[in-house]
């Protein structure tokens, strides 16, 4: 069973994928988000950190045995168990399908929509309208898939569900955005089910109220 | 062993990941790129196609047993064997790490740099200069990793190598771009090794001359 340390800044939705996967699988994960263990912007620019994690990005994982990984999908995969990864070749491929879907269909437009509302980017009406449409399109596909299923792959929670839920975190934090999106209840129910089974991490989403 | 059909337009670098993986693993893959089997822009908008592949994007894979997959990373993974996917949990995670690296560190700036030169998008000097810097940074990390290794993960070709090589296809097609990038020979040697072992697919890269 994996054991190690996850370096990240607090409330990092990418790190949540790994943290939730570890909770489900039982991997022993220490999370370093603050001094002295880790200071984002400083520690990740040191030569020691960069020698293990050349991009200087977080989350970054170092096992107790020295094994190093960057890229959140890889870390979450490593900290998972076979059930989360997909126990058959078909299930494993479907898990990767939805992980890619989250990265390529949800994250870009969701970020383009949410970041201006957080004051991180300048607001651009045309870009925001396009982003909303793109988010709606992605969530419509997701909602349709969940019309007849409880989870994205198979009959139990997988890395697909964890990844997709985490990718929607900021959409849900900005609650009113999803209400405007007129999301059908399948997605909200889906999120509740993915998060409900794991009591240890529910506090990470305590500020989120599904629409 | 997987057997099915890959729907795509011709010369699609995303489809190449799956095609090369299938060649290595021995999966029986038919590739549908032209009428009557598949017409990009028409077939992928039909209700029949969208019922299996709701995003309408390619590459899309349908097994002879009816199993459907979208997202190129998932398809390539499914058509691989255990060696390509990474035979141990650590190797499998490292494969995913480099796949994510290709998607997040190479493809965005490579697209920003190359698309205007192909007439796909309008040229923007500032965006191009930034893209060049980002490509250089990503390839520097890659080159450094390959300084002491033949392949990205372990001692043999994996999905990591296939994905990273395919993600650089446009950069290499626009040969002069890489010359301007002053790529150290590690990457060129790396590409040659990844492609050299698989004679069946070398024709896919016949128009590419590594810098």
């Amino acid at each position: 069973m994996a054991a190690g340390t996850l370096y990240t800044y607090p409330e990092n939705w990418r790190a949540f994928k790994a943290q939730i996967a570890a909770q489900y699988s039982g991997a022993r994960l220490k999370v370093a988000t603050s001094p002295p263990a880790f200071t984002f912007g400083q520690t990740n620019r040191t030569p020691a950190f960069l020698s293990n994690f050349p991009l200087g990005k977080v989350p970054a994982y170092q096992g107790d045995d020295g094994f190093c990984l960057f890229e959140s999908n890889a870390i979450a995969h490593f900290l998972s168990n076979d059930a989360l990864r997909g126990a058959t070749p078909q299930a494993a491929a479907q898990v990767l399908q939805w992980v890619s879907f989250a990265d390529s269909e949800i994250i870009p437009p969701a970020s383009a929509w949410v970041f201006p509302t957080l004051g991180i980017m300048q607001f651009n009406k045309q870009a925001t309208e396009q982003a909303k449409e793109d988010v709606k399109r992605a969530l419509t596909v997701l909602n349709q898939h969940l019309n007849t299923r409880t989870f994205l792959v198979g009959e139990r929670v997988s890395l697909a569900d964890i990844t997709v839920v985490c990718s929607m975190l900021w959409l849900y934090k900005q609650n009113s955005l999803l209400n405007k999106c007129q999301i059908v209840c399948h997605i909200s129910q889906f999120i509740s089910k993915v998060l409900a089974r794991e009591k240890h991490v529910s506090h990470l989403f305590c500020s989120v109220r599904p629409a | 062993m997987a057997a099915g059909t890959l729907y795509t337009y011709p010369e699609n670098w995303r489809a190449f990941k799956a095609q090369i993986a299938a060649q290595y693993s021995g999966a029986r893959l038919k590739v549908a790129t032209s009428p009557p089997a598949f017409t990009f822009g028409q077939t992928n908008r039909t209700p029949a196609f969208l019922s299996n592949f709701p995003l309408g994007k390619v590459p899309a894979y349908q097994g002879d047993d009816g199993f459907c997959l979208f997202e190129s990373n998932a398809i390539a993974h499914f058509l691989s064997n255990d060696a390509l996917r990474g035979a141990t949990p650590q190797a499998a995670a490292q494969v995913l790490q480099w796949v994510s690296f290709a998607d997040s560190e190479i493809i965005p700036p490579a697209s920003a740099w190359v698309f205007p030169t192909l007439g796909i998008m309008q040229f923007n000097k500032q965006a191009t200069e930034q893209a060049k810097e980002d490509v250089k940074r990503a390839l520097t990390v890659l080159n450094q990793h390959l300084n002491t290794r033949t392949f990205l993960v372990g001692e043999r070709v994996s999905l990591a190598d296939i994905t990273v090589v395919c993600s650089m296809l446009w950069l290499y097609k626009q040969n002069s771009l890489l010359n301007k990038c002053q790529i150290v020979c590690h990457i060129s040697q790396f590409i040659s090794k990844v492609l050299a072992r698989e004679k069946h697919v070398s024709h896919l890269f016949c128009s590419v001359r590594p810098a």
Binding site: Y9, G41, P108, S111, A112, W170 | A112
Partner: peptide
């Protein structure tokens, strides 16, 4: 969290690039 999020690298324009690529290859394929 917002301050940290501001330092994240996101491909905001991905959809625009996907769309441009799609149109390009649809034209190329008649």
């Amino acid at each position: 969290a917002v301050d940290f999020l501001a330092q994240e690298k996101i491909w905001f324009d991905k959809t625009r690039y996907d769309e441009a690529e799609r149109r390009f290859y649809e034209r190329m394929n008649g």
